[in-house]
Amino acid sequence: MGKVATGATMSIDGYIAGPGDSGFDLLFQWYDNGDVEITTAMPGLTMRVTPASKDHLDEWNGALGSLVVGRHLYDLTNGWGGRHPLDVPVVVLTHRPPEDRPAADDNFVFVTEGIEAAVATAQEIAGDRNVGVNGGEMARQALDAGLLDEVHVDLAPVLLGAGTPYFPSLGIKPVQLDGPVKVVRGSGVMHLTYAVRK
């Protein structure tokens, strides 16, 4: 079984989105400020990053077997048009699965029984590969439940001032992490990996 890790691009003041789901243009500038092209599974979505960022992304994405996201992100992205850009199955934790989705949709699995069930489903799908947990509410729930092995931060040099924190309203605090166990310097981003102290 692989690792369970959360990862997000975060502002220096700790936000993964600004007020009203804004600020993504500032947070994700590093997706288009390099010379190395990365194609995704989403038509029309290509990133241009530095060689260091590409190596970092290739290492993590190459070991990724599934993702866990919340219904808010699923709706915000319109289900990524039917396939996540990382080309892996997505487990969506929700109180209310969408009624209009295709019955035989292998790209998305909707789970209503809580974060433990969502992560267990994602692990079953991933096999010996890693499970990625989206930042925000999903990361908070997974950390509170003791399910996370690592925290990945793509630190962007921007201050958003308010918005959605990476870990909103932790039920267990303080939480100590070990590391950073890995540091990669990109252009307009610092990739940091921390181990969750069990």
Rank of each mutant, 00 (worst) to 15 (best):
V49M: 15
T121M: 08
K182Q: 12
V183F: 05
G81E: 06
V131D: 01
D87S: 14
L73S: 12
V189N: 13
L155Q: 14
Y15D: 01
W80M: 04
L160R: 05
G171L: 08
G70Q: 07
T94R: 00
H84D: 12
D87M: 04
L192Y: 06
I12W: 12
G79H: 06
G188S: 08
L64Q: 09
T39D: 08
D75Y: 06
K182C: 02
K182E: 15
L93V: 00
H84E: 10
V133I: 02
A103K: 12
Y194A: 05
V184K: 03
P51I: 14
A195R: 15
P89Y: 00
E150A: 13
E37K: 15
A52C: 09
A41Y: 15
Y74S: 02
L45W: 13
A126C: 06
M190R: 05
P157L: 07
R96V: 01
A17C: 05
F110I: 02
D58M: 14
G23M: 11
E116F: 02
L26K: 12
Q29C: 09
T94F: 00
K54H: 15
A145L: 02
R101P: 00
Y74I: 00
V158P: 01
F167P: 00
V133E: 01
W60G: 06
G79S: 13
G34R: 13
V91I: 05
T9R: 04
V88L: 01
D105H: 07
Y166I: 02
K182F: 00
T50P: 03
V69A: 10
D25G: 13
E113A: 10
L64H: 03
A52V: 09
V133P: 12
Y74N: 05
K54L: 07
S66C: 11
I16Q: 02
V68A: 10
L177D: 03
V131C: 04
L64V: 10
T9D: 13
D178T: 12
D149F: 03
F110L: 10
V119H: 09
P102I: 02
D154I: 01
V183L: 13
P98H: 07
Q123N: 08
E150R: 10
D154N: 15
A120C: 05
L147H: 07
F167K: 07
G23P: 02
N130G: 04
F108A: 08
H95Q: 09
L155A: 14
A17L: 05
